[in-house]
């Protein structure tokens, strides 16, 4: 967490992350180009580069889209999520390089402006096989640019979380557009079934991973059906909650994280104010509930971030009866202090 905005708050982990990512991208490009030159001596450098960059961008987007659900499956993937925006920006840069080279190669030095040529060169929209695949690529590139340009927390704060989140869900639209870009473009000429197979495998991986983790989320989001008394709902035994961790239950349609720490139990919203991260999968560190995604922190008793930070989440009344934790499903205003229930 930082108070002042910086383009990138560099630390050792970020440097390692970016170095590994850049190494992976350069390795991919180098292997692609060398393989192309060895197996197809007739190819030109610019054509090979255009295909290598485009393929690299699409593959990296597959990785970007895998990170979120993988973290739901195994939290040890979380370091990949913490700096995911760096990977998103790298995806855009690869795509922009692909698009830029293609623009020069296929549309420059003609009788109209290259950008006009992209939009008006092939306008056969009547037949799917002849549809201008470049439009899908351009559309995806614009979306990737918007997401890369607004990936910083500055934009999250100023666009507001709902707008920012909706904008960044556009990554799925960009992915779909790029699938169409590939299917209606290069796959109309390169007809190897293996190429179709690789694309299909990637799509099946992304779709399968999202469906699987979505199904698990959906199962977890079912309304908790514990006993009720005085408006409180019995959620679990104290012993069911690991020390400094939480048990997440759905009450009144909201995910509530019930944390056990320091001989006490507190309940607060499980949705982090930063990027809607799963606060209930976080940990109490130095007395603060800490989000597993980007480390945003909240006091368990108040749901408020420590000064000078201003984020806060709703809290819930909680009590312990006979070793069982009871939570009132009505949320208090974000930052409202609630006396924690003492264990024993």
């Amino acid at each position: 967490m930082t108070l002042a905005y910086q383009a990138i708050s560099w630390n050792r982990q970020k440097r390692v992350y970016d170095t590994v990512m850049a190494g992976g991208v350069l390795t991919f490009l180098a292997v692609f180009v060398v393989t192309g030159l060895v197996l197809h001596s007739e190819i030109t450098a610019e054509a090979l580069l255009i295909r290598a960059l485009g393929t690299g961008a699409f593959l990296l987007l597959n990785v970007v889209l895998s990170i979120g659900p993988l973290c739901r499956v195994d939290p040890r993937f979380l370091p990949m999520l913490y700096n995911r925006r760096h990977m998103g920006v790298a995806t855009f840069l690869l795509g922009a390089a692909h698009g830029g080279f293609a623009l020069v190669q296929f549309h420059a030095l003609g009788d109209v402006n290259p950008l006009v040529s992209v939009l008006t060169g092939n306008t056969d929209v009547q037949r799917l096989s002849e549809f201008p695949f470049e439009w899908f690529g351009l559309f995806a590139l614009v979306l990737l640019f918007l997401m890369a340009a607004t990936s910083h927390d500055f934009w999250l704060a100023n666009l507001t979380a709902p707008v920012w989140k909706a904008l960044h869900m556009g990554v799925y639209l960009a992915y779909a557009a790029l699938v169409l870009h590939v299917v209606l473009g290069v796959l109309q000429a390169e007809t190897s079934p293996w190429l179709v197979g690789v694309l299909g495998l990637g799509m099946a991986w992304i779709l399968g991973l999202h469906v699987f983790t979505g199904w698990r989320e959906w199962c977890g989001d079912r309304e908790h059906a514990g006993a009720t008394a005085d408006g409180f709902v019995e959620v679990c035994a104290v012993a069911d909650i690991p020390e400094n961790r939480a048990r997440v239950v759905t009450l009144g349609g909201e995910r509530v994280a019930v944390f056990r720490y320091d001989g006490k139990v507190s309940a607060l919203s499980s949705v982090c104010r930063h990027q809607n991260g799963p606060l209930g999968e976080g940990c109490v560190v130095d007395g603060f509930v800490t989000c597993p995604w980007h480390g945003y922190q909240y006091l368990p008793e108040t749901g408020a971030s420590p000064p000078p930070f201003t984020e806060s989440v709703p809290t819930f009344a909680v009590k312990i009866v006979m070793g069982q934790v009871w939570v009132h499903p009505r949320p208090n205003a974000p930052g409202t202090r609630v006396e924690p229930a003492k264990i024993g």
């Binding site: 197809h40 290598a52 000429a189 190429l195 690789v198």
Partner: peptide
């Protein structure tokens, strides 16, 4: 990634 690069670069050939 390297395997995919070899496969995709090798399988595209209509130059």
């Amino acid at each position: 990634g390297a395997g995919v690069a070899v496969a995709l670069a090798g399988l595209q050939h209509r130059y």
